[in-house]
């Protein structure tokens, strides 16, 4: 899958928490992810939804997605039609949530990316190209579990398709959905 789009950066690079991605003011009362998406990144950058374009990449520093476990955070990003998030590192609950709902995350040296740079990402090959700067970036390969979840279209589809977990073969536990 080849994704292309422009880089969107923020005034704060590190420790962008899930409260900034989608505020508690909205996530507790709005159930429609499309409507939530209009408030994405609002507390950090009030005009973000207006300045973003379909297919953009969010580009950040360390520990992106720290804080609350709210799944509305990656949902709001996905429904704002962002292709993927690139960061130097991700917080763990956010990391799982993003792959569970089918939002790709890419770990790479984001100092090599400037606002508005044109980027292309080949997830299968593990290549990020900065077209504007004419250079390729090394990315941390995705664990097999994450690739399986992305290939299935997220955790919901994975469980539905396999009627339980099918992430590793050598399990001593019987896994089956409860009917």
């Amino acid at each position: 899958m080849l994704l292309t789009g422009k880089a969107r950066k923020f005034s704060q690079e590190d420790d962008i928490n899930t409260d900034y991605i989608i505020s508690g003011r909205y996530k507790f009362k709005i159930q429609d992810p499309q409507e939530l998406a209009t408030h994405v990144m609002e507390d950090l950058d009030p005009n973000f939804f207006q300045r973003r374009q379909d297919g953009d990449f969010l580009v950040a520093g360390r520990n992106f997605g720290c804080g609350s476990s709210r799944e509305q955070a990656p949902q709001a990003i996905k429904y704002a039609k962002i292709n993927a998030v690139m960061a130097k590192s991700f917080a763990r609950i956010f990391y799982r949530n993003a792959f569970n709902i089918g939002l790709p995350l890419i770990e790479c040296d984001t100092d090599q990316i400037r606002e508005n740079d044109e980027l292309s990402v080949d997830l299968a090959k593990g290549v990020v190209a900065n077209i504007t700067q004419n250079k390729n970036l090394a990315i941390k390969p995705l664990p097999q579990v994450m690739l399986t979840l992305l290939a299935d279209g997220g955790l919901v589809e994975h469980i539905r398709k396999h009627q339980g977990f099918a992430l590793e073969e050598k399990s001593n536990i019987k896994n089956q959905i409860s009917k």
Binding site: S69, E71, N97, G154, L155, F165
Partner: peptide, 8 residues
């Protein structure tokens, strides 16, 4: 964890 993980 997130909601979908708890759902699973």
């Amino acid at each position: 964890m997130g909601s979908t993980d708890v759902a699973a």
